[in-house]
Simulated assay, not measured.
Amino acid sequence: MSVSRQFAIVTGASTGIGLELAKCCAREGFDLLIAADEPEIDNAASEIRKTGVNVTAVQADLSTIEGVDKLYAAAAGRPVDALLANAGRGLGRAFLDQDFTRARFVIDTNITGTVYLVHRVGNDMRRRNAGKILITGSIAGFIPGSFQAVYNGTKAFLDSFSFALREELRDTNVTVTCLMPGATETKFFERADMMDTSVGVAEKDDAAEVAKTGFDAMMRGDGDVVSGMKNKIQSSVANILPAGMLARQHRKQAEPGSARS
């Protein structure tokens, strides 16, 4: 990697928003270290290298401490100018019907792995008093997620965590931005076993547009950004309506079989 360029780490970069975030970084001339828990990360690296930047790909299970350590070690001590913590998993169906191993994987990927990586890289940034952190939260974090209870709960954590960390770093030159998308056209709903739900088959936001919204906000140093007008309205309404009503509304979108109703 060329040390004259800025350097970014992007997780969950094999597909979807993560891949598009990595492309945003490449267009701005960042060298990249990208990671995901699947072999497709190598294909993503090959695609991004066509832009002329240096790209290192790491396949690692970012739900584990060992996987995050593997990613961190791959940076080889190079200062990280931007950390885009995007790795995440979803899971549909009623909580008590879910396999707990899969539910825990969602928690460990979305929360434990993300927080550990931010802790490691964030400490390096604070010591240098420079750096940008983008955390992919979700407007789902504002809504009790009936039939997505664990996933929405993890996003509520990440939204809250991002705001808190930003305040803690207010007097430094390290910025924290929370990207809060709505339903986006990715492999998320297929992987979450939600293709028989209303939200699973509905028209969704474009991943490239969502990523650009988040990337631009990170580069400006904004605290948070909700992508898309529809999602902005939904997040505003979620701050007003009672939690029970929001949970009932979410059920209509996420309950198995709702795609046929």
Rank of each mutant, 00 (worst) to 15 (best):
A140R: 09
I107H: 14
Q148C: 06
M245H: 03
S258R: 09
I107A: 13
R5E: 14
E168V: 03
A76S: 15
D159E: 09
V225E: 10
F105H: 13
A243T: 04
V174M: 08
C25N: 13
K50D: 12
S198D: 12
S4V: 04
R248V: 05
E209C: 08
G145Y: 00
L241D: 07
F163E: 08
K212V: 00
M219H: 02
A13R: 10
N110M: 03
D61M: 00
D31K: 05
D69Q: 02
D37L: 00
S162G: 12
G18W: 12
F189H: 10
T114D: 10
I34F: 09
V68S: 01
S138N: 02
A149I: 06
A103R: 04
Q6D: 11
T56V: 15
G29F: 13
A8P: 14
C178R: 07
P39M: 03
E38G: 07
V237T: 05
T11E: 01
V115L: 05
D216H: 10
R102F: 14
R191W: 13
A36Q: 01
L84D: 15
P256I: 10
G228A: 07
V201N: 08
T114K: 09
A26K: 03
A36C: 00
L91K: 01
M245K: 07
A259L: 00
R102L: 14
Q148A: 11
F188R: 03
G12P: 05
A35S: 03
Q249L: 13
V3D: 15
V150T: 13
I41T: 02
T213G: 03
G88W: 03
F188I: 02
T64F: 04
L117P: 00
G137L: 07
N152R: 00
N239D: 13
A103T: 08
L241Q: 07
F95E: 08
I48Q: 03
K187P: 12
A254G: 09
R260T: 11
T175W: 05
V150E: 06
S198P: 07
T109L: 01
S138D: 06
D224K: 10
D99P: 03
S258C: 08
A87S: 11
M219W: 04
A60H: 13
D108R: 04
L84V: 09
I65W: 01
A192S: 05
D171N: 14
Q98W: 09
S146R: 05
L96K: 06
I34T: 08
G12Q: 10
S146C: 01
I139R: 09
T197M: 11
M218Y: 02
D99Y: 07
G145R: 02
L241W: 10
V174H: 14
S2L: 14
Y116V: 04
A130M: 07
L96Q: 10
C178G: 11
R128A: 14
R248I: 01
N123I: 00
E255Q: 11
Q234R: 15
Q234W: 15
H250I: 00
R128M: 09
N54E: 15
D124M: 06
F189K: 09
K70W: 03
L179P: 04
L84C: 14
A82F: 15
V199K: 01
T112R: 00
V55T: 05
R49Y: 05
